[in-house]
Amino acid sequence: MFEPLIGQKQAVELLTQAVKQNRVSPAYLFVGADGVGRSLAARCFIELLFSTSVQPHQIQTLKNRIRQGNHPALFWVEPTYQYQGQRLTAAEAAEKGVKRKAPPVIRLEQIRAITQFLSRPPLEAPRNVVVLEQAETMAESAANALLKTLEEPGKATLILIAPSPESILPTLVSRCQKIPFYRLDTASVTQVLTQTGNADVLLHPEVLSLAAGSPGSAIAAYQQLQTINSELLQQVTKTPTSYRNALELAKKVDKELDTEAQLWLIDYLQQSYWQQIHKRSIIEQLEKTRKNLLSYAQPRLVWECTFLSLLQISQLR
Results as ranks from 00 to 15, higher is better:
Gln298Tyr: 12
Ser164Val: 03
Thr289Arg: 03
Glu248Thr: 07
Thr149Met: 08
Ala94Lys: 13
Leu265Asn: 00
Glu136Asn: 13
Gly213Thr: 06
Leu225Ile: 02
Arg87Trp: 08
Asn22His: 15
Ile266Gly: 00
Ser309Thr: 14
Leu108Lys: 10
Glu124Lys: 11
Ser25Thr: 06
Ile282Gly: 12
Glu256Arg: 03
Ser209Thr: 05
Ala246Asn: 05
Glu3Phe: 11
Cys305Arg: 08
Gln276Met: 13
Arg67Tyr: 07
Leu132Cys: 15
Ser242Cys: 11
Ser230Arg: 10
Leu118Gly: 01
Tyr273Gly: 07
Ile219Glu: 04
Ser314His: 14
Tyr296Lys: 09
Arg183Ile: 01
Ala135Pro: 07
Ser25Phe: 14
Val12Asp: 06
Ser209Lys: 10
Val302Ile: 09
Trp264Ile: 01
Ser167Phe: 05
Val24Leu: 09
Glu140Thr: 13
Ile283Asn: 11
Gln177Phe: 06
Tyr296Arg: 12
Arg120Asp: 07
Val207Lys: 02
Ser53Asp: 04
Arg175Glu: 10
Arg317Gly: 15
Leu232Trp: 11
Ala125Trp: 06
Gly35Arg: 00
Gln82Cys: 10
Lys9Phe: 04
Ala42Asp: 07
Asn229Leu: 02
Thr171Gln: 07
Leu316Trp: 00
Gly216Asn: 07
Arg317Met: 12
Asn198His: 12
Ser272Asn: 12
Leu184Arg: 03
Gln226Leu: 13
Arg87Leu: 14
Phe45Tyr: 11
His71Asp: 08
Val36Glu: 00
Lys279Asn: 15
Ile66Leu: 15
Val19Ala: 10
Thr289Gly: 06
Leu301Ile: 08
Ser25Met: 15
His278Pro: 00
Glu256Met: 07
Ser25Asp: 02
Ala18Ser: 13
Thr80Glu: 15
